[in-house]
Write a protein that binds this DNA or RNA. Structure first.
Length: 478
DNA sequence: TGAAATGTTGGGGCG
DNA sequence: ACGCCCCAACATTTC
């Protein structure tokens, strides 16, 4: 029997447009599909609860997809180099093929994997597959990384177009090896099963991702530029968790959306352009993380080291649990807890509230998002929290403080988003639903609402919090 | 990918 | 008819 080739799956849990898998298939040797659960390698950034739930479902799905083709996904738990060394010894594999990662620990991890392969006389090959543009390919004229989005994205668009997707290879033969049982990995919540809302909201896996992309393009892409902001509508793609786990690639999305846009043609920015620009922000985040690997924990702008943050555990808990007294903030935070997701508009509102109204360090918010979002992604999460806080690249200016009442009135005008996720406010009429503390007593009584009991009063006064935030930012502005 | 404060304008009520 | 004031409505600037 020929020496097998190990395809080391990570956040690339798909069979189509998978350059490493395609290259392994080209070899003509049996393929051993492998996933390693390595809780030791990123010491600080252990996968969050919602991510582990998704991972369990996604591994189940790709294992089935492989089984349909006669293969068996090998699951191993442990430190990656040790697992690879053991498996190379067991199987006599001639190589390990993987998709390049960009997190801060990836260079060392990939080097360790390469070393394990070399010691076993096998080759280690890394393929691109996660990004449209490699970080080395998009640099300013003097060879430095971009720190402002617009010129970055212009440079991307002027660059050679992204790699065209490759189809799923025909997989002729597989190798097998002893495998853990997925159920034994404990990825699903036990004790309280908080994942019911996730189960009702999501269908992880490659097939579902492709279906979602198709439905998005058919039904919502044309209206995306405006519609994505409305919290009570479902006008976003919701592809982010699929994209994070690599169930679909950015290249697949790029080409399908570009093709769909080819028939359009409008004076205002089209939905396709707006959507591709969001993919551009993802690229930008990954490039930033690659070039500035400390951004998950440290502000990119050094002057923020002395920012007068507050350590307010009660306020943080109120924010996490969706009881700040600002309905739009609470609705969004409860949506996050129930479904593992918020659209971008909601993320901006709640992030601005945590950082500007409460003056709580953005890292606390980033940690909470990493634990609760099904699309938790170190690059996007770090870059976007720093963007909101003003400490990052091309950051939102310090004075841009969202007014949660105005944001609610603008993007949830009839209050149906609030009603869906904050049921104790459901009986309030639209004029009052974003400002329950201003509602007349008769309206509150009719809605069976007792402020401070059935729903909290605002934990901060907007005008005072705004002034406090401006003063805090003035302190580091000198 | 804001919001609030401040400035300007123009219609209309009214003496 | 006229000037004055009020104040939306909109524009600009400031945070």
């Amino acid at each position: 029997m020929a020496q097998p080739v190990i395809v080391w799956f990570r956040n690339d849990l798909r069979l189509a447009d998978h350059p490493a898998l395609a290259a392994a298939a080209e070899v003509g040797a049996p393929i051993l599909p492998l996933y390693i659960l390595d809780d030791a390698t990123p010491k600080r950034w252990r996968m969050g609860g919602a991510s582990r739930w998704w991972l369990h479902k996604s591994l189940t799905t790709i294992a089935k997809d492989l089984a349909k083709r006669g293969g068996r996904l090998c699951l191993r738990r442990g430190e990656t180099p040790k697992v690879l060394s053991a498996l190379l010894a067991e199987t006599g594999a001639s190589g390990v093929y993987a998709t390049r990662g960009y997190e801060p620990w990836e260079p060392a991890l990939q080097q360790a994997a390469a070393h394990a392969c070399r010691a076993a006389g096998a080759e280690f090959r890394v393929f691109s597959g996660r990004l449209l543009f490699e970080p080395e390919a998009i640099l300013t004229g003097d060879g430095r990384p971009y720190r402002v989005f617009t010129p970055f994205w212009k440079a991307c668009l002027a660059h050679d177009p992204p790699r065209a997707p490759v189809p799923a290879p025909r997989l002729k033969s597989f190798a097998e090896a002893k495998s853990d049982r997925l159920e034994d990995w404990g990825l699903l919540p036990t004790g309280p099963d908080w994942a019911q809302g996730l189960l009702e909201t999501w269908r992880p896996g490659e097939a579902a991702a492709l279906e979602r992309l198709g439905a998005f393009i058919d039904n919502r892409l044309a209206n995306y530029a405006e519609g994505r902001n409305f919290l009570d509508l479902d006008e976003t793609s919701r592809l982010s968790p699929h994209l994070h786990f690599g169930e679909i690639s950015a290249n697949q999305i790029w080409y399908v959306v570009t093709h769909a846009a080819g028939c359009a043609g409008a004076r205002t920015e089209s939905g396709a352009e707006a959507y591709l620009r969001e993919l551009g922000w993802r690229e930008f985040s990954y490039h930033l993380l690659h070039h500035f690997p400390t951004i998950p924990s440290e502000p990119l702008r050094p002057e923020f080291a002395t920012f007068p943050w507050r350590d307010d555990r009660d306020a943080l808990a109120a924010w996490q649990q969706g009881r700040t007294g600002y309905p739009i903030v609470d609705a969004a935070m409860r949506e996050l807890w129930q479904t593992g997701f918020m659209r971008n508009r909601a993320r901006m509102i709640v992030a601005s509230f945590l950082v500007k109204h409460l003056l709580i360090p953005w890292q606390r918010g980033a940690d909470w998002f990493l634990d609760t979002l099904v699309d938790a992604d170190l690059a996007n999460n770090s870059a976007n929290w720093q963007w909101v806080a003003g400490s990052g690249a091309d950051a939102a200016p310090y004075f841009r403080i969202f007014n949660p009442v105005l944001q609610g009135a603008k993007f949830d005008p009839d209050g149906s988003y609030v009603r869906r996720f904050v049921p104790e406010l459901a009986a309030l009429p639209a004029p009052d639903i974003h400002v329950p503390w201003q509602a007349p007593a008769s309206v509150l009584a009719q809605a069976n609402l007792v402020l401070g009991e059935t729903y909290p009063r605002p934990i901060v006064d907007h005008a005072k919090a705004r002034a406090r935030s401006l003063a805090a930012f003035a302190a580091i502005r000198r």
